[in-house]
Amino acid sequence: MDPKEIIARRVALELRDGTLVNLGIGLPTLVAQYVPAGRTVAFQSENGIIGFGAPPPEGMEDVNLTDAGGAFVSALPGAVSFDSAMSFAFIRGGHVDATVLGGLQVSSDGRLANWMVPGKMVAGMGGAMDLVAGARRVIIAMQHASRGVSKIVPALTLPATADRRVSLVVTDLAVLEPIQAGLLLRERAPGVSIAEIVAATEASLIIPEDVPEMPISNGSP
């Protein structure tokens, strides 16, 4: 299974029935495809839509239906659109139950860096800062390393998105939970050993005696 699909399927299991969930740009948008059958989740994008679904089939795209990154999405029955002021009122008012965001780094104390890409012109930070501060749960969906360099680090070397500790980090190797004492290794990806996770992680981990293999959603696109 593709590493991004593993991440998206595992994150989908974290989304509770009847909740309002924001999906960030990139990998997090894949989560909408893998929500378990029978579970209803209303997906929100900060550009002004609640109730979007998976990308439409080729040739069925609507230029007025995109996520915050400009990728085409479908509108599910009951979907609503509104301006960005209303969208950020949902976020800043604490009405978003969870947000799923990509990440460039997560530190040992659970802080996220995800808005400034080194060497790239910054067009804007989007809604990341508002989402980390305002959503009830903050789930980070990202690959464990980039070009062999760990993204789980002792301390951020990139600008922090917010001071708040994130709720959960799901990578292609592991599920990590930031707690007061550090990063707790909760689960390991299918076929991945604890030794492999430790070798790929720059930060220290808290490792329990039993680290189960992560479950994967059987939801399908």
Rank of each mutant, 00 (worst) to 15 (best):
P208I: 11
S45D: 10
G124I: 06
E46M: 13
A68L: 03
F43Q: 08
S193N: 01
S217Y: 12
E5R: 13
V35C: 00
V41I: 15
R188S: 01
I50M: 08
A162M: 03
I7Q: 11
Q180A: 15
A199M: 12
D163F: 06
S87C: 11
Q143S: 13
A189E: 03
S108Q: 09
A199N: 13
G38A: 08
V106D: 02
P154D: 08
V106K: 10
L184E: 02
A85Y: 09
F52I: 06
A75K: 10
V153S: 03
P118I: 06
G103C: 10
V153L: 01
A145Y: 06
Q143H: 15
F88K: 09
E5V: 14
V149T: 13
G191M: 12
R39T: 15
T99N: 03
E61N: 05
T157P: 01
P190M: 12
I216T: 11
I179S: 04
A113R: 00
V35E: 02
R136P: 00
L173G: 08
V80E: 11
L131A: 10
V31E: 02
D210S: 12
P55V: 05
V106H: 08
I140Q: 03
L131D: 05
M214G: 13
D83M: 11
L173H: 14
V169N: 12
M86C: 10
H144E: 08
D210R: 10
G148D: 07
A135W: 01
N22G: 13
R147E: 14
I49W: 07
R92V: 08
V106T: 12
S81R: 14
Q143F: 08
G127C: 09
M116F: 04
F82H: 12
S146G: 08
A98L: 04
A174W: 08
A174Y: 14
T157F: 06
S193Q: 01
T29V: 14
D130H: 15
V73T: 07
V35R: 12
T201L: 06
A135I: 00
G78M: 02
P36W: 07
G182K: 10
P28D: 09
N64G: 11
I25L: 05
A42S: 14
F90K: 00
I91K: 01
D62I: 06
L20C: 06
G127R: 00
L168Y: 07
E14S: 11
I206D: 02
P221S: 14
P55S: 00
I207Y: 05
R92W: 03
P57Q: 13
A98V: 04
S217R: 05
E196L: 09
N218P: 01
A189P: 11
S204C: 02
Y34W: 15
G182A: 07
G93K: 05
V170D: 05
V192A: 11
A71P: 00
K120Y: 02
M116C: 10
I194A: 04
P208Q: 10
M86W: 07
P154A: 03
M86Q: 14
E14D: 11
A200T: 07
V63P: 15
L183N: 05
L76P: 04
D62E: 12
S84G: 00
V73P: 00
I207N: 07
